[in-house]
C-alpha cells in the first residue's frame, strides 16, 4: 500500500484515540502538582508524585473510560510507549534537580519551557497529532516569557511555578 496513504490512515486512527485529550489534561494536572516544588525545595516528593501521575494514570483511566467509549486499537510498536515516557520523564527530573542545584536558576523557566516543548514535539511526532505541536510552541513561548520575567528581577522559582 502507498506509504503516504498508510501514514494518513494511521494518523487518523491515532488522532481518534487521543481526541478526548485525556493525556493532555493529565499532563496539565501533573505539571500543576510539580509546580510548588519550585517554590520550596523540600517538596521534592511532588516531582515524583507528578511524574507517577503522568506515567500511570492515563493507563488506568484509558481502560476505565476511554476504551469503552471511543474504542481500543493497538498499534504495531506496542510496549515501547510507556518506556519512552518513563525515560523522558526520568531524564527531565534529573535535569530539573541538577539545575536546581547550580547557580543558574534564572535560566530555569527557559530551560523547562525548552525541555517540555521538546517532549511535546516528540509526542506529537510519534502520535502524528497536531495538538502536541501547539502545546510545544506554547511551552517554548512560556519559556521565553519566563526568562524575560526573571531577567527583570522576579524570583525564578515563582516564575517557574506560575509557568507550570
Amino acid at each position: 500500500m502507498d506509504p503516504a496513504a498508510v501514514r494518513e490512515i494511521e494518523k487518523r486512527a491515532r488522532s481518534a484515540l487521543r481526541q478526548d485529550g485525556l493525556a493532555i489534561i493529565i499532563a496539565g494536572i501533573a505539571l500543576a502538582i510539580m509546580a510548588p516544588f519550585f517554590l520550596d525545595d523540600r517538596l521534592g516528593f511532588l516531582l515524583i508524585l507528578g511524574t507517577g501521575f503522568y506515567v500511570f494514570l492515563p493507563v488506568i483511566l484509558k481502560k476505565r473510560f476511554v476504551y469503552p467509549r471511543i474504542g481500543y486499537a493497538r498499534f504495531k510498536e506496542k510496549n515501547t510507549k510507556s518506556w519512552r515516557l518513563l525515560i523522558s520523564t526520568t531524564l527531565l527530573m534529573l535535569f530539573v534537580i541538577v539545575l536546581k542545584l547550580n547557580a543558574y536558576n534564572w535560566l530555569l523557566p527557559l530551560y523547562l519551557g525548552a525541555v517540555f516543548g521538546v517532549i511535546a514535539f516528540a509526542i506529537g511526532y510519534w502520535h502524528k497529532t497536531v495538538i502536541e505541536y501547539v502545546i510545544s510552541a506554547l511551552m517554548f513561548l512560556s519559556g521565553i516569557v519566563g526568562i524575560i520575567a526573571t531577567t527583570r528581577g522576579n524570583d525564578p522559582g515563582l516564575v517557574t511555578a506560575i509557568q507550570l
Binding site: 498508510v6 494511521e10 469503552p68 471511543i70 474504542g71 481500543y72 486499537a73 493497538r74
Partner: peptide, 16 residues
C-alpha cells in the same frame, strides 16, 4: 484501518 493497526476493537472500527 486494520492494516495500520495490530488490532482494534469493534467500537473503534464502528466510530472510524
Amino acid at each position: 484501518y486494520l492494516y495500520v493497526v495490530e488490532s482494534a476493537d469493534f467500537l473503534f472500527l464502528l466510530r472510524q
